[in-house]
Computed example of a mutant assay.
Amino acid sequence: MIQKVKVQNSENLEQSIPLLIEMLDIRIGLETRALKLAIPNMTESDFARARNILALCGANELPHGWSLLNFQFHMCLYESCGRPKLLELIEETATSFGHLSRARVSFVTGRQIPHAEHVEMLRACEARNIGLAVSLLEQHIEHTQRALIELHEQ
Rank of each mutant, 00 (worst) to 15 (best):
G65C: 07
G65R: 12
W66F: 12
W66E: 02
S67P: 02
L68W: 10
F71G: 05
F71M: 14
Q72N: 12
F73W: 12
M75V: 11
M75T: 11
M75I: 08
C76Q: 05
Y78K: 05
C81R: 08
G82R: 05
R83I: 04
P84W: 05
L86Y: 09
L87E: 06
E88Y: 14
L89V: 04
E92G: 12
T93N: 09
A94S: 12
A94Q: 13
A94L: 08
A94E: 10
T95I: 06
S96P: 02
S96I: 13
F97E: 04
F97V: 11
H99L: 15
R104I: 09
R104D: 04
S106H: 10
S106G: 07
V108I: 15
T109W: 01
R111A: 00
P114E: 01
H115K: 13
H115G: 00
A116W: 08
E117C: 03
H118A: 00
H118T: 01
M121Q: 11
L122W: 03
A124C: 00
C125E: 01
C125I: 07
C125L: 11
E126H: 06
E126K: 07
A127S: 06
R128C: 02
N129L: 01
I130F: 06
G131D: 07
L132S: 03
L132I: 04
V134A: 02
L136W: 02
L137K: 14
E138W: 08
Q139S: 08
I141S: 01
I141L: 13
I141A: 02
T144N: 08
R146K: 13
R146D: 02
A147R: 15
A147P: 03
I149L: 14
